[in-house]
């Protein structure tokens, strides 16, 4: 295994009876990378997480994390990683500070180190004023930050976050990603799963996952560029009226209104000529247009449909 690889899997597979939740996954994540695992609920994201952090046994295949085999050195792997499960793993009847201290002791953090890291963690998560509040009485966003703080208390090399922004309001989500970028600057590797495709665009690389398989792994921009689906952005004085006309035309996959603009996604091989002709028939003038890359979501849906 290369020195600059933080996570590697080879043919990683997990079956539950007849259902294969994770199906022969081969993956490399470099050190210091922010890798996003993206897919709908039930795609197998949580299962991969659990396999990688060593709390689930794979049916076949292998995985290495932080330079160690998850199969043979599971407990040593656990010392080097931080993991935040979907439910954050907080004790709701313990206070903020009690939760942090508990995980610090569990990971053998010394008293002096604990003092420093507690201050640092409370600071970046803005939880300092809520130290004595019970975790159960925190808002969703604050719980999520506390969960992150607990997962970071022992300064892990690799951080695993399972749908960390699930059920958290948009402002808190943006704050959370800011914190992740700061962690990235410190050289930590982050492996995050999400069902939100807009979040996936913030990752260095993404893996699109569907029914236990990885459909593609690349930088978000390159995933979007790889598509053969043409997309065009058009300006109108009345975008709503234009959308009525364009929607339902042959060769048009989807139409989205963004203010005075339309984002029109077309079938593979279709041209814009048909759209122009239809708009002309209805007497609607196009103020301007340009080609656009489809969003990750568009690409993902077309990939799923192609299967």
């Amino acid at each position: 295994m290369d020195d600059d690889i933080a996570i590697k899997t080879s043919g990683l597979t997990k079956s539950f009876g007849a259902v294969t939740a994770v199906d022969h996954i081969d993956l490399d994540v470099k050190k210091g990378e922010l890798f996003g695992l993206v897919g709908p609920d039930g795609a197998g994201k949580t299962t991969i997480m659990r396999l990688l952090v060593g709390i689930m046994e794979p049916t076949s295949g292998e995985a290495w994390v932080a330079g160690l085999s998850v199969m043979t050195e599971r407990e040593r792997v656990k010392e080097r990683i931080g993991y935040m499960s979907q439910r954050f793993g907080l004790y709701e009847d313990l206070t903020v500070i009690e939760n942090i201290h508990f995980y610090a002791d569990l990971y053998g953090v010394s008293r002096r180190e604990r003092l420093q890291s507690t201050e640092r963690l409370l600071g970046f998560s803005n939880l300092t004023p809520f130290q004595k509040r019970l975790a159960g009485q925190l808002s969703g966003g604050m719980k999520q930050k506390l969960g992150l703080a607990c997962a970071l208390v022992h300064r892990p090399e690799v951080l695993f976050l399972d749908e960390p922004t699930n059920g958290v309001d948009p402002v808190a989500r943006r704050d959370f990603w800011k914190i992740l970028y700061e962690l990235l600057r410190d050289g930590i590797t982050i492996f995050v799963s999400t069902a939100y495709l807009d979040e996936a665009e913030r990752c260095g690389r993404v893996g699109l996952m569907y029914q236990g398989r990885l459909l593609t792994v690349d930088e978000p921009g390159r995933v979007r560029a790889s598509t053969k689906l043409p997309m065009v952005e058009m300006w109108f004085s009345d975008a709503r009226a234009a959308s009525e006309v364009v929607r339902g035309l042959p060769g048009v996959r989807s139409v989205a209104i963004h203010g005075d603009r339309l984002h029109v996604l077309m079938q593979e091989g279709s041209t814009i000529d048909g759209i122009h002709a239809a708009l002309k028939r209805e007497g609607i003038g196009v103020k301007g247009e340009r080609e656009r890359l489809p969003s990750l979501e568009d690409v993902f849906i077309s990939m799923v449909e192609a299967r």
Binding site: S85, R87, G89, Y91, E92, Y103, L106, C150
Partner: peptide, 14 residues
């Protein structure tokens, strides 16, 4: 039931 076990077993606790 509360999901904290998942967190516990991911730690090096024996």
């Amino acid at each position: 039931e509360r999901g904290t076990m998942e967190q516990l077993i991911s730690s090096p606790v024996k």
